[in-house]
Design a protein around this nucleic acid. Structure first.
Lengths: 336, 336
DNA sequence: TTTATTTACGTAAACGTTTACGGAATAATA
DNA sequence: TATTATTCCGTAAACGTTTACGTAAATAAA
């Protein structure tokens, strides 16, 4: 409860609230002496305008919402970092919500945000089947920018990475280093993000005349224990010599599974994984990763949102693609 | 701009705005039939009360602020995760701010929050020398809970971990595994958090009758390049056989430095580091860490804040200590 | 001098809620 | 029946801003 408000401030200065308000907003209608007096007093009394009154009056909140599946994930926290950086420079506030991959929670957040609490939304969709209906309802009323976890069937501005190409190139990299049987750890398959990665994998297989073997595609399970079992089973049964993991959570269990199965990475099995694992460099062996420009995605997404605010953006339904980076490390080193 | 507001909703129902408002808030003054009608229509029209009007009228924002040095840090993102979890259950909103360790930015955020935008603040202090003045000013007006990065000289509610004991025990663990010359990578030394870790280290040395050698304490530099150089120098010159790193950012360079100096971890040098490195398990060799209960710290801090809101907390100046967990891994394995 | 323009400020309404107060209708009590 | 209590709802004020409108004084133009 900031005890000081614009009326008291005005009273203190023998001015009207209107004049004070205008002075603080540097209006041309106010003389420079008065402005100086007001500024000084405002500083002295530590006056901060009540944002609710301003927002109510102005129908602007200077606040944006970021909705992500998880905060405690290197990719998302880097993206939020980028978003916060842009927001801070523009004196915007950032509300954070995490869905834990539940579209029910996601929808509930979105509905709550219809209240006008935020001027716009940045969202990375949950994996669960998307509720197009509700998202449409929100994006009809508010600027929404989708980032990374996007869905082709949902119209809107999107910032994504070159999922198809990066997956394709990753497979090529495996092939070039001698892989003949490449498995794919499937996730995000309810989203375009996941589909494009899968398609890149499939097309690269085709290009290399590799058989199209469904058994080599492992769909992620309900929890990490199940995932570990599935992966171990995949490696033991199918004996792939290369694995492309579509998310980092599925790459880590590969290390453990190989250890248990007495397989050597990269000699017996080469591994590539999406995306922004913090210390891929220091894993044993260091892990070849497809690095997404997470921070930049956040910056870009926030940038587009602010352009929309300022009517400096007119493409309602464009997808901006940023390039991922294949960082080659020991886990895919060719056998010499 | 939610086009629908309480007046239109009332109009649609042939009721007054007051009645609708009361019905939505389940007031006893409203008949159950009317309540049902209102609820139904509100749902149908997707009505969400304008939060700014409510907040302005009620002087409550249902929003809390979280100020941290960095979001993209495993410890902080886990803590935020915990905070968000608690907030969501109570229908609170969470604003995120990062200071990038700058007390100037920190102060600026704090001052801006005096506007009443939030009902309370959770803060983990920046390393830079703390501006006690401004923090005092804020905590006089708003409930503030400090977590992890705390400062003894600043009064208030604090959630921290057993920094002294965990450092002491870490040194003991090194000694038990044969270390005779243990270095310390110093950081956070402007905060109590850092001081206690250092003190734990020093006292453990004393307990073991190890000499008190200032050269074994390396203060972190301005950036990661400098840190790497300092660490390499420390290892090369002082030839410690054990290192305790007070933050994870200083532990990673040890791996690189040892690689370059052809030293083997843990044979030639044993390493322990704070705190929540994501994949310490998979490093080469796996890293012994002092794991802080990051998520729980977030939950606890948020819980206290909400208790303060509900006047269910009366200790203005208490420190709650959560236990860290020393997770022993290969980097401190004894020579056999 | 008279009139138009500019400057600098005040008045009051509006933003969308919530709630104190009041009041009419109904039910309970005397 | 007369009085009181209860139930249910409406009126209007208030929260702290911002801004359209008005206006008095000073200045410029005629």
């Amino acid at each position: 409860m900031g005890e000081i408000n614009i009326k008291k401030l005005a009273c203190e200065l023998n001015l009207s609230a209107a004049t004070v308000s205008r002075a603080l907003r540097d209006s041309h209608e106010i003389s420079s002496e008065t402005k100086a007096r007001v500024l000084e007093m405002a500083k002295k009394l530590n006056y901060e305008p009540n944002p609710f009154a301003s927002n109510l009056r102005g129908q602007k909140s200077k606040t944006i919402a970021v909705i992500v599946p998880e905060i405690a994930n290197n990719f998302f926290s880097l993206a939020i970092n980028g978003i916060e950086d842009v927001a801070r420079k523009l004196d915007y506030h950032v509300l954070i919500y995490q869905t834990h991959e539940s579209s029910e929670i996601e929808t509930s957040f979105l509905m709550r945000l219809l209240s006008g609490r935020v001027d716009g939304i940045l969202i990375s969709l949950a994996c669960e089947t998307v509720d197009k209906e509700h998202i449409k309802k929100v994006s009809d009323q508010l600027p929404v920018v989708f980032f990374d976890r996007v869905h082709d069937d949902i119209e809107g501005m999107k910032i994504a990475t070159d999922d198809y190409e990066s997956a394709y190139n990753a497979v090529q990299h495996l092939v070039e280093n001698g892989c003949k049987k490449i498995a794919y750890l499937l996730a995000l398959n309810t989203l375009s993000t996941g589909n494009k990665r899968l398609q890149g994998y499939l097309d690269a297989l085709k290009y290399n005349n590799f058989p199209d073997d469904k058994n080599l595609i492992m769909e992620s399970g309900a929890n990490s224990d199940e995932n570990y079992a599935l992966i171990k089973n995949l490696i033991a049964e199918q004996k792939p010599d290369g694995i492309l993991s579509s998310i980092e959570d599925l790459a880590m269990p590969c290390y453990y599974a190989c250890k248990e199965l007495k397989l050597n990475i990269p000699r017996d099995l080469k591994l590539i994984s999406y995306s922004n694992l913090a210390h891929a460099e220091l894993l044993n062996p260091s892990l070849t990763t497809i690095n997404q420009p997470a921070f930049e995605i956040g910056v870009e997404a926030a940038g587009i949102l602010f352009k929309i605010f300022n009517k400096r953006w007119y493409e309602p339904n464009e997808t901006i693609i940023l390039k991922s980076n294949l960082i080659k490390r020991e886990s895919t080193r060719g056998n010499v």
